[in-house]
Design a protein around this nucleic acid. Structure first.
Length: 817
RNA sequence: GCCGGGGUGGCGAAAUCGGUAAACGCAGGGGACUUAAAAUCCCCCGGGCUUCGGCCUUUGCGGGUUCAAGUCCCGCCCCCGGCACCA
């Protein structure tokens, strides 16, 4: 428990004092001139929060504190650290919450932002509040719209039809997270899919580059892996299967399929088209139109989530149409089934039931032929298939290719197909284009004007921002379009090109577009004539460290890399990777689950800070466990860091002058070395432990500390406990902030060296004694001393000694037997 | 199902390249100081046995490699996060 009478350290008064002084002195803020002229610039970024009504929770603070500790350490080593903070405040969460409580988001967000700002100041983050951003501020989204226009003008923003979740009862578009078990979360009506025109950014054009650059950026390995899997590059072939008419004659048209296993083409016994495939109509036999259309209708009524989460039982219908397998020359039937997705590959597959699990299930269910074309080591060409065989082996039942090993068969068969003119090697990506349209209210309007004569026309840059109007009734309604489409006085305008009456785009853009470029805006947040000032951008970007959660490994971190690449190609910036270093922190969970309001396990920081102070709380969070792994939040251990900071205070204020104690001095230098290594590696928990250990050594037996011992301790605790460090620094007689002037201590290598060491003595790997020896002891001396140990001698008696293993400075092991 | 990350005392955890398992802290126990309490300092703290010298055992489970395995290899089980018919 907090005890105010304990001694002179009163966290709340120290913290109030220093937060006030930081603000008055501008300790953490920069003027434009300071940013322009900074020496050793270090841009330390963390993921800006969505300002919810509940305020910051412990999970947020954990992430920000870790990043702040890192930034403060860099600053103490002499870097000019720019550490901005902002608010990602547009989006469906705010909108839904505003609807629920009946407050307009334009009123709700500013009050949430105020509360977040208060909390962020209270935890002692080194934030530059002169360079904050709020994505809902027109002075910010003006430039989000500008980014859209750059993509539009470069031909990278394309309008095309795409399916959305549609609730036929609410008559509105739903986001995936609003679909619960295939039904609308509000009215429980089964959700359908509908196709509407939407804007897409063509990220797939950059897929290879986004993948290639992963080779040379310094990111957490887990995040790199997630990005690489998400891009999902695969190599294979595109094959053409000619469509035949009722008499078996080729019609000139063909079905294009993408496959990673073109070598199994001899086993393709049927074709499957996705229900949305444009050729379905053409191949369907007149007599089967009714069931085929019924099937397609049913498939289209499934919502997108259910469609993708269907269980293993397959559905489908035959079209009555046929095409020719170009390898075997045989006619094979064409089916329609929804296990084939229109948005991957070509939307059509050649089914090889012998060697693909899904095709096998489908063929079994509909009694389609299954042919073995690969034989593993224990099989031959006529070994029956109980299930799909997906392993390696040799081709069988494959004409001239029988006996070809699967290690080379893909290349060989692809070459043959290419020579014969029915296929070619092909690279395919899993990554889809990025749909940035939202049929919603709470976002930046997409800056496009639709003109009947000119088509979609960019809003002239001089006319930005296209301001989101205040609409009291922003609830989606039965019009089936964005709420802005009901505001006629807003959307009616004239075409910037021909002057004719025209209509504004009424969709708003995705929040990932807001967050896709915010790091470019921070240093230029006080510029109004450009999205980012070229000189300042050149000085501060690409940024030095980005620390954030791995839940953004694929969306935000991929989109912002893509935007950066495009802006580079368009000549706006001169780098293409925004984050040289990215580190993923772990997740703080409570009671075995992610903190969430619905689970009721959200822990709010304010009462903890009231009781123990921000410095203790910060130190505790960092001491809890490895920062990059996260872990369970348990409040029990906070007493440890609390007592530690109190003891540190007592020790510092009572430090005296005097001659150094060699053992304590050695410990201090060892600690400086360890903490200096561990802080840049984000190993905060062990760094705090080292500081505790060092303080224990300084205070051992109740001895009085020396000034020379405590001064480095004050600097080293400063990243974790900045307020108390400032106060103690001042009490040690220093002027100004501890964070100004590169105060990080140096260590003297010579003073870290131990004079004597402990060497373990083992017999057959079991510890039997340990001996003290001088640090430069010889192997021979160690062995002699080890034998002299009574307990060792007993275990060596009467047995044959076979080997002696000596690990210098660590152990000696007698192998006997 | 696939891809990541984990599993070590009552609890949070630590452990360079394979080299004394449990640093640091919480909780608990004992002692010193104190009229008392707090704070502070010292000691104990995985389990079992002990003649108090020690001995055996212990890092999710089962095997293996090695003088030596928490760490490497093979096969399982469980927990967390992400993705979900990707041809």
């Amino acid at each position: 428990m907090a005890n105010e009478e304990r001694d002179g350290y009163d966290p709340s008064s120290v913290e109030e004092k220093w937060q006030r002084l930081w603000e008055e002195r501008g300790t953490n803020t920069f003027t434009r001139e300071e940013l322009e002229n900074a020496e050793n610039p270090f841009y330390n970024l963390m993921m800006f929060p969505y300002p919810s009504a509940e305020g910051l929770h412990v999970g947020n603070i954990y992430a920000f504190t870790g990043a702040d500790v890192h930034g403060r350490y860099q600053r103490l080593t002499g870097k000019t650290v720019f550490e901005p903070m902002g608010f990602d405040a547009f989006g469906i969460h705010s909108e839904n919450f505003a609807l629920k409580i009946g407050t307009h988001p334009m009123d709700l967000i500013p009050s949430n932002v105020r509360n977040f700002t208060r909390q962020l100041k209270r935890i002692g983050g080194m934030f530059d509040w002169n360079h904050s951003v709020d994505t809902t501020d027109p002075s910010y989204y003006k430039w989000t719209q500008w980014v859209f226009l750059q993509f539009f003008k470069a031909g990278l923003a394309e309008r095309k039809e795409a399916p959305v979740n549609w609730c036929p009862s609410c008559m509105t578009v739903l986001a995936n997270e609003q679909v619960v078990g295939g039904a609308c979360e509000r009215c429980s009506t089964p959700v359908e899919q509908r196709r509407i025109a939407q804007w897409f950014f063509e990220i797939t054009k950059y897929a290879q580059r986004l993948l290639d650059n992963l080779e040379h950026i310094d990111w957490s390995p887990t995040t790199l892996k997630a990005q690489s899997n998400w891009i999902g590059r695969s190599t294979g072939a595109q094959l053409h299967f000619p469509i035949v008419n009722g008499k078996g004659e080729e019609t000139g048209a063909s079905i294009e399929v993408y496959t990673t296993r073109p070598d199994t083409v001899f086993g393709a016994t049927y074709m499957v088209l996705s229900p949305e495939h444009p050729l379905v109509d053409r191949v369907t036999d007149d007599g089967l139109r009714a069931p085929v259309y019924a099937y397609i209708d049913k498939a289209s009524k499934k919502d997108l989530v259910a469609r993708q989460k269907a269980d293993k039982s397959k559905t489908g219908v035959p079209t009555g149409g046929y095409c020719r397998n170009p390898a075997t020359g045989e006619l094979i039937p064409i089916w329609v089934a929804d296990y084939v997705l229109m948005n991957y590959g070509t939307g059509a597959i050649m089914a090889v039931p012998g060697h693909d699990t899904r095709d096998f299930e489908f063929a079994t269910q509909f009694d389609l032929p299954i042919v073995r074309v690969v034989a593993g080591p224990d099989a031959s060409s006529d070994t029956p298939l109980e299930e799909a065989y997906v392993g390696a082996g040799k081709l069988v039942n494959s004409g001239d290719f029988d006996g070809t090993d699967t290690t080379e068969s893909v290349d060989i068969v692809t070459r043959w197909a290419a020579e014969a003119g029915w296929g070619e090697a092909r690279v395919n990506f899993r990554l889809h284009d990025w749909c940035i349209s939202r049929q919603r209210y709470w976002g930046p309007p997409i800056p496009i004007i639709h003109c009947e004569a000119c088509g979609p026309v960019a809003v002239p840059e001089a006319d930005l921002p296209v301001v989101l109007p205040r609409v009291e009734d922003f609830k989606p309604d039965d019009s089936g379009v964005s709420p802005l489409a009901r505001v006629e006085e807003w959307y009616r305008t004239t075409c910037p090109e021909c002057g004719a009456a025209a209509r504004r785009e009424t969709d708003v853009s995705d929040t990932f577009l807001d967050s896709g470029w915010y790091f470019l805006r921070y240093p230029s947040a006080d510029f109004d004539d450009r999205p980012f000032d070229p000189a300042i951008t050149k000085k501060w970007l690409p940024l030095n460290t980005y620390i954030g959660g791995n839940e953004h490994a694929v969306l935000h971190l991929m989109y912002s890399r893509f935007i950066t690449m495009v802006l580079k190609d368009l000549g706006h910036i001169d780098f293409e990777e925004p984050y040289e270093v990215f580190r993923a922190h772990g997740l703080i969970i409570a009671d075995g689950a992610k903190m969430s309001k619905s689970k009721g396990n959200v822990i709010v920081p304010d009462p903890i800070i009231d009781e123990f102070g921000a410095d203790t709380f910060r130190t505790y969070l960092m001491f809890l466990g490895p920062f990059e792994e996260g872990g369970d939040y348990r409040p029990q251990g906070i007493q440890g860091p609390y007592g530690f900071l109190h003891r540190l205070w007592d020790t510092v204020v009572s430090a005296v002058a005097g001659p150094p104690d060699v053992d304590v001095e050695r410990k201090v230098h060892q600690t400086i070395r360890q903490v200096s290594e561990q802080l840049p590696a984000l190993q905060f928990n062990t760094a705090v432990a080292a500081l505790m250990e060092c303080l224990n050594a300084i205070r051992a037996g109740g001895r009085s500390a020396l000034r020379a011992e405590v001064e480095p301790m004050v600097v080293m605790i400063a990243p974790f406990a900045p307020h108390v460090a400032e106060e103690l620094w001042e009490r040690l007689g220093h002027e100004g902030s501890i964070f100004d002037g590169a105060n990080w201590p140096d260590f003297d290598e010579a003073k870290t060296i131990e004079t004597s060491i402990v060497i373990a003595v083992q017999v057959n790997g079991k510890l039997r004694a340990s001996i003290n020896a001088p640090v430069d002891v010889s192997e021979a001396d160690v062995v002699v001393a080890a034998r002299a140990e009574e307990n060792v001698a007993r275990h060596l008696e009467g047995v044959m000694e076979r080997r002696v293993i000596y690990v210098p400075g660590r152990l000696v092991n007698f192998v006997v037997g």
